Simulated assay, not measured.
Amino acid sequence: MRKIAFILLVLITGIAQAQDAALESARKKIAANDFKGAKADLTKIIDSNPKNKIALNLRGQARLELEDFYGAIGDYNAALEIDSTFADALNNRGEAKMALGDDEGAIPDFDKAIKFNSKFADAYSNRGLAKYNTEDLQGAYFDFSKALELGPVDSDKYFNRGVVKAELGEFISAIDDYSKAIEFDKNDPALYNYRGVAYYNTGNLDQAVADYDQAIKLDPKDALKFENRALAKNAKQDFKGALEDYSKAIELNATEPETYNLRGVVKYSMEDHDGAIADYTKAIELDDTNPVYYDNRALSKTEKEDYAGAIEDYSSSIELYPSDPETYLQRGVVKVTMNNKYDACLDFKRAEELGSTEAKALIKKNCK
């Protein structure tokens, strides 16, 4: 009997060693992005041993990368039925839920992963992302900071915390995090773009433009980066430079109405009212539900003394947004210019009712 037991022990040991080798092979395939190959290998292991939680977790990872999110969750569920404290499977299941847009459902999984492994930096990072997506900015701030504390530090961790700081209005501190992220990855255009936005919000326009320059150098095909640089140049009153950047943004993406609107604003500042009207008209063609585009076109039409056209645009704006006192006020001013004081006074009174502080003086001057 001892001999038989010894033989069984050898067999069990050999099987375990073979499975360990197969698991390591599957891990290497996942690392090499051969997710289909890894899934096939892991399925063989699971078929021979359905209780292998490591294989189930790894197959879940392969399925997650193959965007089989429900299949991945099924594998993680099976692994957790075997070991409910399996932190890796909890974290990975949370990632799969996030991929399905279920951020709220993912957070309890990350909570449990952290409960069973308090040093699990990836789980803190993932929970931070889920909290960010559910607009819990303070919670995300804590989690990203904890992930950095646990380490290893990297570009993504600093970037994530920088984004949250910026949304909380902590732009100077966000710049510090973006700068640290850039130290780890000097070739990521997004890092320079986001830091440029933060600099713009602190009023450091020169540094914002410098960061956008670098972002564009690294990624010259992104319309948004040109638009961001145009905003900074416009704020510096470099209207020619802003105009060039908006035109480049439109060349890269001709279907974004806001870019036409913003280019129209620059043309208005340069007193090119025909050009501004053309841009506002294009913006309206692409999105006829934004009252700002009608307001802006009305301003340029007023400058060209097309008062009837301006009133028409202000009226369209009011139909879309009837609670804006400024639009009534501006329409009233145009009506005064046309000597239609009766209708102008109706607009001024409505503007006053909606909270305009300027309307009272206009009523006193023009209305009896």
Rank of each mutant, 00 (worst) to 15 (best):
6 F>T: 10
11 L>I: 07
14 G>V: 02
14 G>D: 09
17 Q>G: 07
26 A>N: 11
27 R>M: 10
31 A>N: 13
31 A>D: 09
33 N>K: 15
33 N>R: 15
36 K>D: 07
37 G>M: 01
39 K>T: 05
39 K>Q: 08
39 K>G: 05
43 T>P: 12
43 T>Q: 14
50 P>H: 10
51 K>Y: 13
52 N>W: 13
57 N>V: 07
61 Q>H: 06
64 L>S: 10
69 F>E: 04
70 Y>D: 15
73 I>G: 08
73 I>C: 12
73 I>S: 06
74 G>I: 11
76 Y>S: 08
77 N>P: 02
78 A>Q: 12
81 E>I: 04
82 I>G: 04
85 T>Q: 09
88 D>I: 14
88 D>E: 15
93 R>K: 15
94 G>Q: 04
96 A>P: 06
99 A>F: 06
100 L>M: 14
102 D>M: 08
103 D>R: 07
104 E>F: 10
106 A>P: 06
109 D>H: 07
111 D>V: 00
112 K>A: 15
113 A>S: 11
115 K>D: 11
122 D>Q: 12
124 Y>C: 05
127 R>A: 05
127 R>E: 09
127 R>M: 06
141 Y>D: 12
143 D>S: 11
143 D>H: 11
150 L>I: 02
150 L>G: 08
152 P>M: 02
153 V>R: 12
163 V>T: 13
163 V>A: 13
163 V>W: 03
164 V>M: 01
166 A>N: 14
166 A>G: 11
169 G>Y: 13
169 G>F: 08
170 E>D: 14
171 F>W: 09
174 A>Q: 12
179 S>E: 12
182 I>P: 10
188 D>R: 01
188 D>A: 03
188 D>L: 04
189 P>L: 01
191 L>V: 01
192 Y>F: 15
192 Y>R: 08
194 Y>K: 12
196 G>R: 03
197 V>P: 04
200 Y>S: 01
205 L>S: 00
208 A>G: 13
210 A>G: 09
210 A>P: 15
211 D>Q: 12
211 D>W: 10
214 Q>G: 07
216 I>W: 03
219 D>K: 06
221 K>M: 01
226 F>C: 00
227 E>M: 02
229 R>L: 01
230 A>G: 01
233 K>P: 13
233 K>L: 15
233 K>G: 09
240 K>E: 14
242 A>Q: 08
243 L>M: 11
245 D>H: 02
246 Y>W: 06
248 K>R: 14
252 L>T: 00
252 L>H: 02
256 E>D: 13
264 G>S: 00
265 V>I: 14
265 V>G: 08
266 V>S: 04
269 S>N: 14
270 M>C: 05
271 E>Q: 10
275 G>A: 07
277 I>E: 05
281 T>Q: 04
282 K>H: 04
297 R>E: 13
298 A>K: 13
298 A>C: 10
300 S>G: 14
312 E>D: 12
317 S>A: 15
320 L>Q: 03
321 Y>Q: 06
322 P>Y: 00
323 S>I: 03
324 D>L: 05
324 D>N: 15
326 E>G: 02
328 Y>P: 08
332 G>M: 10
333 V>K: 10
337 T>N: 12
339 N>T: 03
339 N>A: 08
341 K>H: 15
344 A>Y: 14
349 K>P: 07
349 K>N: 09
352 E>R: 14
355 G>A: 06
358 E>H: 11
365 K>F: 02
368 K>W: 08
